[in-house]
Design a protein around this nucleic acid. Structure first.
Lengths: 140, 140
DNA sequence: TTACTTGTTACACTTACAGTAACAAATTAA
DNA sequence: TTAATTTGTTACTGTAAGTGTAACAAGTAA
């Protein structure tokens, strides 16, 4: 599952939680509504739990519910919770490249550039809250 | 090979071509200098040829050489030449998602958002020329 | 005890990718 | 004409990654 698909799935689940808040709902129920396997969804939700975005409880009457207000959840923290790898990352192979050579210098150049791009993307995501997404969706 | 690695490889090859310009060089020679298989490199270079960035000739005394000045080659056109897929793309599965449902609306939302991110990235790349990279590398 | 739910692991299956080799077509030189 | 060289593309083999599902211990409530 690509990072972007995981992000989209997470937001679908969070929107569902917001709709039924504060009632806790099971992974099966959420999974059914967004068309995904519940086991797979639990793997994603467990990451949101670890990062304090969602609360979970085992047992009967257990399930998931939002731990923060939608206005206080932004895309960047969701993204960071579910994905440790960067969107733009360079597979730098140090083998067979001479020290201080042009290829090595270019590796450093691109590492810097891709880090910059990553910052730009995350800055953009920081400005988008779950609440703003919900508002936009409802006005269409 | 990821898009970012392919981009980095392409620039390494283009820098090499710039160094020896206007002498045409074989894929083996370039591949040797940047530590990659020549067959693999040819697959990348063939895309740059198709997009008018590089010129190629078969046979003895054949090889590759730049078709444009380094100041007139920018990262975005290299990126578009080698990669048709977007950096941020959503695997939208239309199956098992109801029309006009929240999940479907969110799919459209993210398709738009990721398209925006893609534009931002490409705008950034449009401002970077091969010449500016060479200058930066040489001043370090 | 029973029923239910999360969180994690496991597993079979498929897909994707990496790295290399091979070869037709084009080109040059002898 | 023949040989040598080089591109552009295809093929192939082994390995890594991803998909989708199932299974189950641990926690929780009735």
């Amino acid at each position: 599952m690509s990072a972007s698909t995981k992000l989209s799935t997470s937001v679908k689940a969070l929107c569902y939680l917001e709709e039924v808040h504060p009632k806790p709902v099971s992974s099966s129920e959420i999974a059914g509504s967004i068309g995904i396997n519940s086991s797979k969804l639990r793997r994603i939700l467990s990451l949101l739990v670890k990062n304090g975005i969602v609360e979970s409880n085992s047992g009967t009457k257990g399930g998931f519910k939002l731990k923060k207000l939608p206005a206080q959840i932004h895309l960047q923290e969701i993204y960071c919770a579910i994905e440790d790898r960067k969107a733009f990352h360079l597979d730098v192979r140090k083998d067979s490249i001479k020290k201080n050579s042009l290829p090595e210098k270019l590796n450093f150049y691109f590492l810097d550039l891709f880090a910059e791009v990553q910052v730009d993307i995350e800055d953009k995501m920081k400005k988008i809250t779950l609440q703003s997404i919900i508002n936009k969706i409802n006005n269409n």
